[in-house]
Design a protein around this nucleic acid. Structure first.
Lengths: 348, 348
DNA sequence: CTTCGGCATGCAATCGATTGAAAGTTGCTT
DNA sequence: AAGCAACTTTCAATCGATTGCATGCCGAAG
């Protein structure tokens, strides 16, 4: 409401340096054709007056907005969000993305969009109109939603897709989920396990499929059967309990289980305890995510670390530099197996 | 760079509805003096064209920016950040604040500012000039930094101070740290404990002092001595180990310990295990924060839950509604004791 | 029947930056 | 010494909204 704006503008700088606005603008944006002497004088004034350009004004005049939008799936409640994702995801996403953005003078804004909504485009479209971000980062399960990617293509806004393999438009970045699952499986096979159960994640996340695939391939490669050994979960603790129960009710029961996230692994651990199964002696356990919790369970869990912060950092850099080396697509920021105390050879 | 901007503007709406821009602007901002019939016609056009006002333009013309800035302390690395704060803080801050902001059409932007920097004002001042936020949320230890609050006062930007008791300018919101500490202490006293140790948090956070005070008062009230029983930590796991060691080396050793955050409580639990002390039989343990980890330790930890999401939600609402009921200051969003399995009567 | 106040709407200036074209400088060629 | 290109700097329009002021319309009061 007509709040008096006492901030320093480009014309104050111009006046102070005794040049026109346009020259100042050139200096700010590092454009050519400015005499070094002039440039120095302007920079001195900028420094002296602590001038910082207004992002709103820059955006208005058709330049950048220095804003990067991160699209996350909206859960109905905070509890639900955390149940499915674990706190760590947000933490790393925020810090990884934010630090890198800040380095380049950009800021990040988070937006929640409901996948199961017919108006995704409308909703996103409105956000874009309001914010006019320079780039957008899509997180699963939005990363491969054609409604969204088409919209972005059409609007010509650069975007990155986290957890995506399909090259196509936008930068696809993934963490080698299939490879990681295979690595975990091979680790268990190496220890002598033959019946290795797998708890899959929610199917609207493509990475859930990739993880299953990796496990399946590793099993096949070792000549082991995977029949009945894959049970469906949805990343929640509760679904993990059900899946673990189903797996351990099989005869013969698996001697090892890989869970598609930490929450489901924790559930599996609890089920094992309730059945008086010792981990790792009676049951080996490997999880995906490697959030801080897994270091405080008994035993500490062997897990596939997901480099989320690094992934967001990469996404931000790609967007800002508008990289264009389509040969590299999809970009890989690989996960890695962190060995702790939840795996051992099966009992003879 | 002169990217063609194909978005719908206010004049498109005006043309479609057959009225002037100003009328459309009035309708958007719910101003009086518009005939209902006219208002309906304009709203129909807005709906039809999917018009959404550009925030940059709104900000430019002296209105709101619909941006709320959250200032956090910058740690040197992500690991350091997480060590001191635990992942959950970020998660709840983001979700609590974001959901509430979104409800009112606002967005949040996070900014890291280095406390130990002489140029705090300069840095913050630049961010404000660039973003021109409608409100700012200060988190500890910035909440009571006079350099910052003075700057904000002077610029006349509404702000909230999380974890602050001092009324003064801006909205002070706290979680009743002293009361919570007292509650935890009384809980232990009720169980029969007489020697209750306390691990304090980093002293540049005021809430660290309040927690110590609460414990001290509860001890005094029960006629118990607190001599030597308070040891300094800095919220990190490592400092927790040292503090716990110091406390358990006392003779007689405390039979219960309250840690100022979960990280230090986890460290205490580890130290107890290493010394073959059973929790809770030999040592009762209560922590602050109640992050998800404490449900997965053995035993599960009794903890003071800190309603961070609710606090941020409150902060956002105060800022947006520009509430002015100074009588209520400071606002309280109280923590609560969550009883789990880490406390028991002391051995006879 | 004129006039005045209140409500509804339109005109034009404004916010702070960018940008393409115009104007002014410089220096080199012929 | 005049002509012209290349480089610097300035002028003026523009982005999309808000806002104070002017204007038009209405009915009620004088």
């Amino acid at each position: 409401m007509g709040r008096r704006n006492q901030s320093v503008t480009i014309s104050h700088v111009a006046a102070d340096a005794g040049v026109s606005l346009q020259t100042v603008s050139r200096v700010i944006n590092n454009e050519p054709n400015v005499r070094p002497e002039m440039k120095a004088r302007v920079q001195a004034s900028i420094e002296k007056l602590h001038y910082v350009p207004s992002i709103a004004a820059q955006r208005m005049s058709g330049s950048r907005s220095y804003l990067i939008l991160v699209i996350n799936d909206r859960e109905r409640t905070i509890a639900e969000w955390r149940a499915r994702r674990g706190a760590d995801w947000v933490d790393q996403m925020l810090l990884g993305g934010m630090l890198t953005s800040a380095e380049h003078g950009y800021r990040m804004i988070f937006e929640l969009v409901d996948t199961h909504n017919d108006h995704v485009e409308r909703e996103l479209s409105g956000t874009i109109a309001a914010l006019q971000p320079d780039g957008i980062i899509l997180t699963p399960p939005h990363s491969e939603n054609p409604l969204i990617t088409n919209l972005l293509d059409q609007r010509n806004i650069p975007f990155a897709r986290i957890g995506s393999l399909t090259p196509g438009s936008g930068f696809a970045i993934h963490m080698g989920d299939a490879g990681s699952a295979a690595q975990a499986t091979q680790h268990l096979i190496g220890l002598g396990h033959k019946r290795i159960g797998f708890i899959a994640g929610a199917l609207d996340y493509n990475l859930s499929h990739w993880r299953v695939d990796g496990w399946r391939q590793a099993m096949a490669q070792a000549g082991l059967s995977d029949a009945d050994l894959c049970v469906q979960g949805d990343f929640s603790y509760e679904s993990g309990r059900e899946a673990a129960t189903a797996l351990l009710n099989l005869t013969p029961a698996p001697t090892a289980i890989i869970a598609s996230n930490d929450q489901m692994a924790l559930a599996t651990l609890d089920i094992a305890n309730e059945r008086n199964l010792l981990v790792p002696q009676d049951l080996s356990l490997i999880s995906f995510d490697n959030t801080p919790v897994v270091r405080f369970t008994t035993p500490q869990l062997t897990a596939i670390d997901q480099p989320i912060a690094a992934t967001f950092s990469k996404a931000v850099e790609l967007l800002i530099h508008q990289a264009t080396s389509p040969s590299e697509q999809p970009y890989l920021v690989p996960g890695s197996l962190v060995e702790r105390a939840s795996t051992a050879p099966p009992k003879a």
